[in-house]
């Protein structure tokens, strides 16, 4: 059974998984990063408290995060079809992945930014820094290490979600594992895909943590 066809399929699976995971993380950050910043800034002890904006984002994030991903995937099928034109395949999977990932990323960013020492923010304000400057030049810089750790964790989670999308024909390694391992009882192929997923996860995790630690100047 280890013919060329299977190997090509697995390689394509890796490619599709990487594509879905990385694209979803990037787009997830495009939405989640500003959302997380807004959450940190508008919270009661943030630099510009705003109960209305905070509550709105807070409820939205909780709402999406409380729906299990598998169900979100199915619920979003009409929306996905509207955006991408079809509901299966790697590109289509990016839509629910982003929607699930963005609030998750926002929470990660929020908690990273809240770790920034209030004293340093106060010092910047005493120098005449605007709110924007405090966010871009103090909070994001000081929280850099924690933000990268957060990104690493998010990436791992999204990788897991992308595999779950295989149940509805999402493509990638998860899809292969479900089609061959579950539907066709070809356990060997499933085991190989699982090993590949584990290796991918390890690579992301190790690289992210190395980068975070390399950029941390606190020690």
């Amino acid at each position: 059974m280890w013919n060329n066809q299977v190997i090509i399929m697995l390689l394509e699976g890796i490619r599709d998984t990487l594509y879905m995971t990385l694209m979803s993380t990037v787009i997830g950050y495009v939405i989640g990063l500003p959302m997380g910043i807004l959450l940190a800034v508008t919270d009661r002890d943030g630099i510009r408290p705003n109960a209305v904006i905070y509550k709105l984002l807070d409820v939205t994030a909780n709402l999406i995060r409380s729906v299990p991903f598998l169900i979100l995937l199915i619920v979003l099928i009409p929306f996905t079809r509207f955006v991408v034109g079809k509901s299966y395949g790697p590109t289509a999977t990016i839509v629910p992945l982003v929607i699930a990932a963005a609030p998750y990323i926002a929470r990660m960013v929020e908690s990273s930014l809240k770790e920034v020492d209030a004293g340093v923010i106060e010092a910047a304000r005493s120098m005449g820094a605007s709110d924007f400057a405090v966010i871009t030049r103090v909070m994001l810089v000081e929280a850099r290490t924690s933000l990268i750790v957060g990104a690493t964790i998010s990436l791992g989670t999204i990788l897991g979600y992308s595999a779950m999308a295989g149940t509805v024909g999402g493509g990638g390694l998860g899809d292969i594992a479900i089609r061959y391992g579950y539907t066709r009882w070809q356990t060997d192929i499933m085991v190989v895909t699982v090993i590949l997923l584990v290796i991918l996860f390890q690579i992301f995790q190790t690289a992210g943590m190395k980068l975070a630690s390399h950029l941390d100047k606190r020690k």
Binding site: D117, G119, V120, E122, A123, A124, S126, M127, G128, A129, A133, R137, V138, V141, E142, R144, T145, L215, D216, K217, R218
Partner: peptide, 27 residues
């Protein structure tokens, strides 16, 4: 009006030179 603090409140992720440059870059 400059200010210094009990806990120094330096930017921990920037080196000494960039810390001193910080207010000047702000302005």
């Amino acid at each position: 009006i400059a200010m210094i603090f009990q806990n120094f409140n330096l930017l921990m992720q920037k080196n000494v030179l960039d810390n001193i440059c910080f207010p000047m870059r702000l302005s």
